[in-house]
Write a protein that binds this DNA or RNA. Structure first.
Lengths: 127, 127
DNA sequence: TTACATAATGTTATTTTATAACAATAAACT
DNA sequence: AGTTTATTGTTATAAAATAACATTATGTAA
């Protein structure tokens, strides 16, 4: 269990407290009072947090969320559902999907390291 | 079967001829001799081509590829394998995955419109 | 402790990716 | 023909990400 550096902790806290995915520049503007002044400081923290599996990047939105799956310390299998109406993003932690897709990748002859899956549609509330 | 406008055709042709995913500004620099001069012209064509299912965006790379699946004219289910060594991107058209994931989305209570799946690892050649 | 290596931070400037806004044409419809 | 709608052209700007380099902190080994 790796401990976070000062900047990593600051960036993680704000992502973890948020109910929605945060963009890098939103994070930046929210941590400037804590002494983080420039984009590279944020991006470096984000990169490390992703490596550790503490956060994930939602590629289709260029935004970041805290990992909901406590056991996931290296994020090699991520899946999200994204509501196109309310923009809600939910992490899907379904071991069946994970097994199914891992298995598929192996059969396809690929030496698989990770995958990312993003579902788009309407969530329960919005449909 | 929708016909393409002039700019859409130009942009599609260059993506379709390419053996690798192309970035928007690479496309732009390659079509300037054909009269397309500015980013919005490229991005507008890209947006329409995506809507039609003629191309897909590789979200993790901000790059665009022609759809390999002739039957796919609305791209509601896309999957790619991405080699982290040679950068090769291959579209996966596997109806089993598609059925499996569609089914999963419905069970999860989501009104699902589309998904995008990206595998990362080493391709057959590179592993 | 000191010396060295490695990781993290601070800072400025720039690159890359994407869109806003508005004017001008072209195509489709009645 | 006249009207609506889609597409194009153009300029400027916004948003997202990184390059490059100086500085400070942390870990480690003699």
């Amino acid at each position: 269990m790796q401990t976070l550096t000062r900047n990593q902790q600051i960036v993680f806290d704000i992502i973890n407290k948020s109910s929605e995915p945060l963009k890098a520049y939103t994070i930046l503007s929210n941590v400037q009072k804590k002494g983080i002044k420039a984009p590279p400081q944020v991006y470096r923290a984000l990169d490390k947090l992703i490596e550790m599996g503490k956060i994930h990047k939602i590629e289709s939105k260029n935004a970041f969320v805290a990992c909901q799956n406590s056991s996931c310390n290296v994020s090699k299998a991520t899946a999200f559902s994204i509501c196109e109406s309310c923009e809600e993003v939910t992490e899907i932690s379904n071991s069946k999907i994970s097994k199914y897709l891992s298995n598929f990748a192996e059969k396809a002859g690929m030496e698989y390291k990770k995958y990312n899956l993003e579902f788009f549609g309407l969530c329960k509330k919005c449909k």
